[in-house]
Amino acid sequence: MAEVLVTGGAGFIGSNFVRYALARHPDWRVTTLDKLTYAGRRENLHDVLDDPRHTFVHGDILDAAVSAPLVERADLVVHFAAETHVDRSILGAGEFIRTDVEGTFVLLEAARRAPRLRRFVQISTDEVYGSVPKGASRETDELRPRNPYAASKAGADRLAYSYWATYDVPVVITRASNNYGPYQFPEKVIPLFVTNAIDGLPVPLYGDGRNVRDWLHVHDHCEALDLVIDSGSAGEVFNIGGGNEVMNVDLTHQILAALGRPASLIQPVPDRPGHDRRYCLDTTKLRALGWAPRVPFDEGLRETVEWYRRNEWWWRPIKEQDPAFRSYYQTQYGR
């Protein structure tokens, strides 16, 4: 049995990967390490918590007494744990630097001592490239992060690379575009707009709404990670993009149409500082290994909208009973 450590495995992408890994690999024993911050929730793992090949550990990657022994006995480490929301990084960058950079350092130090480790996957983001007015970012392009979240991820990205170059830690780095799918915390645009629209509430659209994002279904992301674990080479970087460039305003109209809600729910709000205009990834390198996204965006978005419609048990307690969420929403959107 391969021992697989998934940090941040109670978050959105992490929990989907844990579920995917257990289903796809009967010879994997998966340990989830998660601090259970506001976006890391046991509910995201409700259907695998009792799986005999899954162990949940409540802990912080910054706490070496907890995280280091898990890394040291692992065959594979898939490192999702991070503070991830751009808006929150603008309100306060400190936690992003501590978790995303210092936390990654703690794990990499343990990885140096891990005798069985054959892969350390550093989950990065397309935001490290900064805004891309035209064309598509390649893995060799300059990193030009423009907000504290992107900068913290760029720092972790390059730190992980340095541990391969200096200490021969078997690091592979992935930079994915915007993910969507089930179990995404409702501060992010798709679940926020879907759940607001379900309740007939305004959907707060930044600026002119013409910012462009490339959307990747979380299941396609999981398949890409699986391939990189198996076929990627240490020290390499792989872009993972869905190839679905959509303006935020068009995305908003698609969500409202899927729910039968009027365009009058769109509430323009002031743009956020440093809002990148466009992201786009060149995925030639990953496609050469045999990967391609399989979920068409229109179909995936419909299925995602339907998931939130069917699973109010998951998101209503967050939006209606969590004082911290309500305080954040008030600060960010003023209502």
Score class of each variant (00 low, 15 high):
9 G>C: 03
13 I>K: 12
21 A>G: 11
21 A>Q: 05
26 P>T: 07
29 R>V: 13
32 T>R: 04
34 D>T: 05
35 K>I: 14
41 R>V: 07
44 N>R: 03
48 V>Q: 04
48 V>T: 04
49 L>Q: 09
50 D>C: 02
66 V>K: 01
68 A>C: 08
70 L>C: 09
75 D>H: 13
77 V>L: 05
77 V>E: 02
78 V>I: 15
86 V>D: 08
97 I>L: 15
99 T>N: 14
100 D>P: 01
101 V>H: 04
105 F>T: 10
112 R>P: 01
125 T>C: 06
125 T>K: 05
132 V>L: 14
133 P>K: 11
150 A>Q: 12
150 A>K: 11
156 A>G: 15
159 L>E: 11
161 Y>I: 15
162 S>T: 12
164 W>R: 06
167 Y>I: 00
174 T>I: 14
178 N>R: 14
188 K>W: 12
189 V>E: 10
191 P>V: 08
197 A>F: 09
201 L>K: 14
202 P>V: 04
210 R>V: 02
210 R>N: 13
225 L>P: 00
226 D>E: 12
228 V>N: 04
235 G>Y: 00
238 F>M: 01
240 I>G: 00
241 G>N: 00
246 V>T: 09
248 N>L: 15
252 T>A: 14
255 I>L: 08
267 Q>I: 01
267 Q>K: 14
271 D>K: 10
273 P>C: 09
274 G>I: 06
276 D>S: 14
278 R>Y: 06
279 Y>G: 07
288 A>H: 05
289 L>P: 06
294 R>A: 15
295 V>G: 02
302 R>L: 13
316 R>M: 03
330 Q>G: 03
331 T>C: 05
